[in-house]
Design a protein around this nucleic acid. Structure first.
Lengths: 179, 179
DNA sequence: TACGACATGTAAGAGGTTACATGATTCG
DNA sequence: CGAATCATGTAACCTCTTACATGTCGTA
């Protein structure tokens, strides 16, 4: 039940076509929060339109339809965002891998943890660069969302890197620290 | 395709019944990494057994079956854990809410961000207490998994709290900081 | 004029949740 | 002996992914 709210949230920032929205899910949104492909987005937009939460405000070239959120849509979005966050859906393959690392033998643990730390460091560096550069002019009205998401990602990568390096330290301590 | 590997990873630490595994998903594992209910676990164990990756090593009271991982299972798990982490599934309703907060008006943003910061602080405190106390004797062979997961959670809550408080500061700066 | 990006849709199937269904054991 | 917990399973349904299918527009 999160996809409709994700779409409402994106449309609340600016009207967009289904195609635009699908691309939005390929960046930070899809990386840290929620993934969706066009094959789930188009039918969901149609359902939201049928419920009166969004509407088609423009039909352009190539059969494109630009959707905007309606007043009812804003209310639905607001009540969802303000609802006390009960334990929602959580599904993260990367974190799952991290948790299961103790099942490996020490050498394999070392390489898996090293790979995680390096990947997190690389992700952090890349994001830091993006944040320090000029704000991406393409994003326009969703710039704020992107900024917030990027900063969240930064914290995420930092925490992951710290976690992996601490696990590596302890592994070295346990196995004698040599090699 | 992550549930079978999650089950293999848990069984790699110690043999368990489907019921045991279902409870495992209710703690840190389900909170940060991957959720699963008994209705998906039992059929998946049967499939894994059919593929020879796990086997029934004991049948106890109440029709319970204790599963253990096989050598083939360990190899499958190892190759999955060592596989370079391409972008896996990510689905996190809480993070999605965080990203969409800019869709609210400033007052609502303030309350949503405050709620997030408070919840993260409470989660962090609770986890910190659990980590400082005596290690839970019930967990036995999965203690290490739990420790790793709890420390990950700690970093997570810290990052979330920082993120929310920074967003609040900026909101105050933008809207004049009064009230 | 060909290629890449834009743009939308459907169908089949995988994976997962909720609800239904059943029964044994333990503990107060 | 009643309630909670242990323990397993199935059926219906929902959601999302993958693959299939189609067509337009800009530009090199």
């Amino acid at each position: 039940m999160s996809l409709p709210h994700a779409l409402l949230g994106l449309l609340a920032a600016a009207p967009a076509t289904g195609y635009d929205l699908a691309r939005e899910f390929e960046s930070d949104l899809g990386r840290y929060a929620w993934q969706a492909g066009h094959a789930s987005i188009y039918p969901e937009l149609a359902r939201l339109a049928a419920r009166g939460l969004v509407e088609v405000v423009d039909q352009g070239a190539r059969g494109s339809k630009t959707y905007d959120i309606t007043e009812e849509g804003r209310e639905e979005l607001r009540s969802w965002l303000l609802r006390p966050p009960g334990e929602g859906v959580v599904r993260n393959e990367g974190v799952l891998r991290m948790f299961l690392i103790p099942a490996l033998d020490p050498d394999d643990q070392r390489s898996a943890l090293t790979a995680i730390a390096e990947q997190a460091a690389a992700g952090e560096a890349e994001l830091r660069e993006r944040l320090s550069g000029a704000p991406d002019p393409r994003r326009g009205p969703r710039r704020e969302l992107g900024l917030l998401a990027a900063r969240f990602g930064l914290g995420q990568y930092r925490a992951t890197n710290d976690w992996a390096r601490r696990a590596l330290d302890e592994l070295d301590a346990r196995t004698g620290g040599d090699r």
